[in-house]
Amino acid sequence: MSALAHGMRMDAALPADVPAMENSQALMQADGLCRLFGPEQGCQDISFTLYPGEVLGLVGESGSGKSTLLSTLSGRLPPDRGRVRYRDGADWVDLYATGEGRRRALLRTQWGFVEQNPRDGLRMPVSAGANIGERLMAQGARHYGRLRQSALDWLRHVEIDISRIDDTPNAFSGGMQQRLQIARNLVSGPRLVFMDEPTGGLDVSVQARILDLLRKLVRELDLSVILVTHDLAVARLLADRLMVMRRSRIVEAGLTDQILDDPQHPYTQLLVSSILRV
């Protein structure tokens, strides 16, 4: 008993490592973002700060503006008003004030984007290995052998049989395609990954595997994630905190389990009470 309680106590490093995450600098900041396609269609009055290592879930029903907000945050859709700033090292980049070159460079190096439909995020006619290697090649990697080694490593990471390295994703199942898309995004060592319903089109058993993989990778790589999902179970599993969207606005934000277990806003209460519990 005492061996367990004292000899192997795991509190030795406690005081030193406590503030690591708390005092880190913000990674991304949105100020008064607004992008509307019609009254309450799109997103408006969006302001928040994202910190390194945080997983932020955007939840809400279809049409609430989650995906519009994700596109605006990820540099794909300029806002009507407001701005998005991203911290690149010591440097704050105003996403839409900077050039497209910088924005794209961010998107393929420090950022990732996992699409709901893997066909939108993969190059279907080229091999799995080339899909994984593309970001590295875009960054100037010019050694075939090393590109291949990275591809093999990442296939292992995402639990795809390495013998499939030269197959095109057309021959893959939906779950494998999604895992390949994840590998293709993470190979460049991004700090921030955007995910749009990453398990949306998949069978439940396949979903579980992807969620498990994402959970693991997010922790191992200390990724920040902005995740769009309408599935509150997915949100609970992956997200540290949530922003609940309804009719283009954020109606409630907070710690994931607090939002789900003690929702304050009438809409959130309705949303949470509508889930079937199994």
Partner: peptide
């Protein structure tokens, strides 16, 4: 980068 993707595919 994608130009090298094509050459990579050639080698594959």
């Amino acid at each position: 980068g994608i130009m090298h993707v094509k050459l990579y595919e050639d080698i594959v």
